[in-house]
Design a protein around this nucleic acid. Sequence first.
DNA 1: CGTATTTCCGTAAACGTTTACGAGAACACA
DNA 2: TGTGTTCTCGTAAACGTTTACGGAAATACG
Lengths: 341, 341
Amino acid sequence: MASSIHDLARHLNISIGTVSRALNGRADVNADTRQRVLEAARELNYSPNQSGRSLRQGATRSIAFMLQPHPGDQEYGEPFFIPFLTGLQARLAESGLDLIVVMGAPGDYQQERLRRVVETRRADAVVLAWTRREDERIDYLTERGFPFATLGRSRSGDSSYPSLDLDFEKAGSDAVDRLVARGHRRIAAIRPSLDLNFGYLFLDGYRKALKRHGIEVDPGLIADGFINEAGGYQVTPRVMLSKDRPTAIIFNNDAMALGGCKALAEMGIRPGHDIAVTVIVDTPLCRYFSPALTAFRPSLEPMGRRLAEMLLASLPAFAGPEGTRIIHEVWPLELVVRESD
Amino acid sequence: MASSIHDLARHLNISIGTVSRALNGRADVNADTRQRVLEAARELNYSPNQSGRSLRQGATRSIAFMLQPHPGDQEYGEPFFIPFLTGLQARLAESGLDLIVVMGAPGDYQQERLRRVVETRRADAVVLAWTRREDERIDYLTERGFPFATLGRSRSGDSSYPSLDLDFEKAGSDAVDRLVARGHRRIAAIRPSLDLNFGYLFLDGYRKALKRHGIEVDPGLIADGFINEAGGYQVTPRVMLSKDRPTAIIFNNDAMALGGCKALAEMGIRPGHDIAVTVIVDTPLCRYFSPALTAFRPSLEPMGRRLAEMLLASLPAFAGPEGTRIIHEVWPLELVVRESD
DNA sequence: CGTATTTCCGTAAACGTTTACGAGAACACA
DNA sequence: TGTGTTCTCGTAAACGTTTACGGAAATACG
């Protein structure tokens, strides 16, 4: 049985209005009364009922992150997100906001979950990840005027909401540059078949870099697959059986890379010896794999912090004195050279 | 601007009470009016305000999971929990409950976050993980009478709340049995130094099995370290430098095992050749590591489902016709033999 | 036809907050 | 002393629901 503001009022023989004002640090309350209220609050173990507060203020003081596990994979564990969430939560906590992570079933497009969160007003804003090229979640939120920020971009541009993304285009380009500098000419690219936007960005960078080096883009060296280990396993042989075998593969996803390496192993092809393997987004899996995979690494925890910052800056209720700002940033990926080169 | 129950009432020229009853499927409303209300709700895109509902009912229809990232590790990513959460959320969704994941900063004991959740009544119940031997969170929740369930046990016993745990004792014992059967007599055990309960269970199983085989327990072969890669790296040399070198190591945690293997590598000791390495809780990291680590694997997704089930069975509001039940279960770990034997 | 029962709905209170408004007291200033 | 200002607080409404209660109309039953 938790104590309410009425209990405090009764206990102190003052009105609930005064109690509330004292608790919320308003100016029009005697310093002495405030002191007594605060003491009583501690004594009676008072803390405000969030539902009551939300109802009155029309704000929940919490941000929802829509977490979507990898489709079709029960044990992979999405190591990508936890550090990101850690940063996100840390920054939000500094502003007194709670982070709630809303899980969906793996593989669904979470449109349903998102609707629930928005329509029942469980959060004041949401953070989206795994943005797609055509993202119905973004359409839905903009249409409803619900505040949000995205980890990743979408095709439609992102002028109206804050977004933070990794520079997949540059990573794809850098990967090619590096491989070409080391003598490779036939470089394969494997990316997820979903509409995920980073897959397009990556491929753009890959294509442009090849052209820059005067290398013709061979469609037989580009393949799409399910964004999980099975997908990589399934699709990698396809590029390897192309008439003129590639000497390097760039994987756009760590899980796909692991599956791809399994396929390579079965074909007797050793990464680091017979073929160069590069992964665009590094995770711990890449580090521990044998051979350890050369990969482009994001700084997830700072990104989480930053995106929280950017989201807050876009919300009238939390923006600083200079008003709300919509910020877009694209962060670099850092190359980590390991053994699979 | 979302529509409320008042909008519906005005639109249909009936009272809000009737609208609410129609929406909630109560018996005392005409079938015809109900039909009209439901149509209007769809038309006006109505969905109930969760704050209002929570306030009135004193229930939020959501369950909080307290997620605590590994201490001192920014990039490990805790692959353990996502599949578990997937199962948890799936079962809760079937009962119309939302799962909210409350993040804490890595390393803190999340007592603070827990208080917030409980005192501001953000959730109807919480799920705890990483239970400690003496767990102040459990004390706090039981003292306050707040409903919860735990993934893991604690020393004090767990009669009053549902708990689901893995059989670490048996895993420790089985690991020893297997190593002894393969000729090992000097078997080291490395576990986290925190008060985490599974560390004790594991060590119990280890000790008992050794005794059963008539092998004396050598304190020099048992070591504790930080529950992360650095901890394993730091502590492994200690057991290896014991006067009579072990021929096998059992790690009680995957991250510590990875760090330990790094230390072994630097000492020129090859798992699978010079020493047998077994890990108690398998994660994808173990599978991809080279050499792939023999490990005991949990079924996380079903465990998540089951713990949700058990939690619901303990809540009066959700228990079925046979009333509330407090269920305790201990699930087996499945041995996966890989290369590090 | 009279009464008892059922069906359906409106009224109003309640959940725990915040806050606009106004009022009384204290104080300042001429 | 009279007027204006400042400080402090109480009152009451409002946020969006759910639900106990009672009443009117319809139906059933003798």
